[in-house]
């Protein structure tokens, strides 16, 4: 075997070992490296009430309810399978809207309602011009009009 081929073989083995080690480490970190719980992972995680955690997911359409004092709100965070009720007092971020993503810092109350200290908006991977989004909504409204006389 020529020295060049020997070095090539060594480099190939090293790269394969490195990628393997990285993948194993990454999958081992699957739980720990997640930035937040989703309603589904929260339900199975057995987190005690009062422990500081993060909850992320979609703000369920039609779930935002404003309190009488004007600064407190409740809403529901959902993922594909489950949902979780959240209570929050304070100013919401600009991008906090129904049907969009949110990450809440806080803790579970004894009544299983998640009490948020702070909210971060989470943008999804879609980039849509405002005009187009408006047209889509108008079109949707129109079809609804014609379908439901």
């Amino acid at each position: 075997m020529k020295p060049k081929h020997q070095r090539l073989l060594l480099a190939a083995i090293a790269v394969v070992a490195l990628v393997g080690a990285g993948l194993i480490a990454a999958s081992a970190l699957r739980e720990e490296a997640s930035y937040f719980y989703t309603p589904t992972t929260l339900a199975s995680a057995n987190v005690p009430p009062g422990k500081a955690i993060r909850l992320g997911g979609m703000v369920q359409k039609g779930s935002i309810v404003h309190g009488a004092d004007g600064v407190s709100i409740t809403f529901t965070v959902q993922d594909q399978e489950r949902s979780q009720k959240v209570a929050y007092r304070g100013i919401t971020p600009d991008l906090f809207v129904e049907g969009s993503g949110v990450v809440a810092d806080g803790r579970l109350g004894a009544d299983r309602v998640f009490v948020a200290d702070s909210l971060l908006a989470k943008h999804d991977e879609n980039y849509v011009p405002k005009e187009l989004a408006d047209i889509d909504m108008n079109a949707a409204a129109h079809t609804k009009d014609t379908l439901v006389p």
Partner: peptide, 11 residues
């Protein structure tokens, strides 16, 4: 993709 993150998924 591996971890829930504040950053959105790849567009």
């Amino acid at each position: 993709i591996w971890w829930e993150s504040q950053h959105q998924k790849a567009s």
